[in-house]
């Protein structure tokens, strides 16, 4: 039948895969492809921040007060007044302490272990309608405003590379490394406990 033809075609492909794994193990084909680039060439797209130590945070500075103004102009529509939740996304404030309840509230304040995550994320992805349109100063200001709403930057405060990396985030020690497989199910065939138990 047709299905058998298909099966043998797939099996043949599997053998091909095994062969190509060998080729891979033998090393890369020696093609001198690719064009050298300098740090200056790629500066515009080199936007990531090593958030645990703040390496990559750019020069510049922004205040909570400026952040509130920019927020009202570019963010409030989707995120709501004081980032409490809006038309497109839920709340971005509070939640600290909620992880010990069965209603965990995930916000930048409660969840991010390092403050520079906020800079990195806003700069790469927000505002959703015009990503990568903000200046670094605007991103610092917006970060300062959102962290202020979360009680992590004082009223009248501001942020720059140094102060942002120094913030002690509440969830700093909230993560554990992957320790799976964690389940030790056995292959019981009869007289087994029903699934629900």
């Amino acid at each position: 039948m047709r299905s058998l033809d298909i099966i043998s075609a797939v099996a043949a492909a599997a053998v091909f895969c095994a062969a190509s794994s060998l080729a891979q193990a033998a090393g890369a084909p020696d093609l001198k492809l690719g064009t050298p680039v300098s740090a200056a060439d790629i500066a515009a797209i080199d936007i990531d921040i090593s958030t645990s130590d703040g390496v990559g945070l750019p020069p510049g500075k922004g205040t909570v007060a400026d952040g509130a103004k920019i927020y009202a102009e570019k963010c409030v529509e989707c995120h709501g007044e004081k980032a409490a939740g809006g038309s497109m996304y839920g709340s971005m404030v509070g939640g600290v302490g909620s992880f010990l309840t069965d209603k965990r509230k995930l916000t930048p304040g409660s969840m991010y272990p390092y403050a520079p995550i906020l800079f990195d994320y806003i700069r790469r992805a927000m505002p959703m309608t015009a990503p990568q349109s903000l200046t670094n100063e605007e991103v610092y200001a917006l970060s300062a405003y959102i962290l202020n709403l979360n009680g992590l930057v004082p009223d009248g405060g501001s942020l720059d590379a140094k102060t942002m990396a120094a913030i002690e985030m509440p969830n700093r020690n909230g993560f554990i490394v992957d320790d799976r497989p964690d389940a030790k199910a056995v292959r019981c065939m009869k007289d087994c406990p029903p699934i629900k138990d």
Partner: peptide
């Protein structure tokens, strides 16, 4: 070292007992 971006801290992590989160569970 890893970057610890939003997608690997605030998202794509698993809630664990005592308010913890399992990270890089890929």
């Amino acid at each position: 070292k890893p970057w610890h971006l939003r997608s690997e801290t605030a998202r794509y992590t698993d809630p664990m007992p005592e308010g913890k989160w399992r990270q890089f569970s890929m």
